[in-house]
Amino acid sequence: MISTASFDFVADLQRRETAMRCEPGKEYLVEARLLPLAREAGYEDVDAYVARLRVDAAARADAVDALTINETSWFRDLAPYQTFTDTMLPALLESRAHVRHLELWSAACSSGQEAYSLAMLLRENLPPGWTATIHATDVSRAMLTRVKAGRYSQVEMNRGMPATRLVRWFERAGSEWQVSEELRSMITTEQLNLAAPFPPMRRFDVVFLRNVLIYFDAQTKSDILRRVHHTVAPDGFLLLGTSEYALDAGPGWQREVSGKTWMHRPEGARPATPAAGAAGPAGVRGGAGSAPARPLATTVPATATASFSSTLGTVARAGTGATLPTSLTPQGA
């Protein structure tokens, strides 16, 4: 097991480089992430490798990259993506009809599964003539290189990617799969440390900042949310992780619920859902198992209101006439 001194050095390195906390108790994780690098570099154990890190800046950068890699799934948690197609997209198709263009930000994009999941939903749901850009940022340059390449291992492809989308949007590339040029052309990348002041940025219609704030301390969280506020359009949307919905985002934000998902919105934004505001998820939508409502279905082009089950669901049953259950309503559990 990694020594306390080595662990403290690595934790401090990660905090300085990324502002992410790495607390005692995570020794096992650090060991698991660094051991392959250590072995690759010819060291017997992690302690010997950490000694090298103390004097080798390039190795330190690799170590930080390895420590910040998070396991990511396509369409992770499903519900936020359902909210995106069912609520945010219809509202934006109405409000952006004059420019027919959407700007999204996938913050802390890791290897890009979130950005490309959104690209697929946009390509499948945007009416003809509309365009969209997804800005993918991460503290790790290695991650951004991966996002740009759009190549994923077999094991990564298995994680939550519906088979129908796999065959539609990916091609084999050696031992990996590569996302189509059509989707890659929608993505821009930029190295960005959320914990430091942001460079000048565009205004985004939707910001996905999911499952990353949990790594920061309270003050840093609050600073990040204040900076993000400046980048969200006045009628735009911010989505946090499933375990972060309850978070008090601080001044300037209001919360709105759609389905199972809490959206954070700049104060004063006109609600995207009719019953938004005080009521909790159950009050708005009824209990679990009720069909997701599509409140703006009558006011947006029909192409944009295809139900989530048909767009995210896996496949039409071949010749059976049966309907797939929607992803959010477990049947006969």
């Binding site: 094991v155 298995n158 994680r159 088979a163 065959v167 896996t314 496949v315 071949a318 049947q331």
Partner: peptide, 28 residues
Amino acid sequence: LAAGAHEYVIKPFTPDAIIEKLDLLGLV
């Protein structure tokens, strides 16, 4: 898929991969 399979998992897989696919099918 054309023959009527609803989902497809490629070996090798992790337990999470199976569970996420079943979630897509509403079978968790």
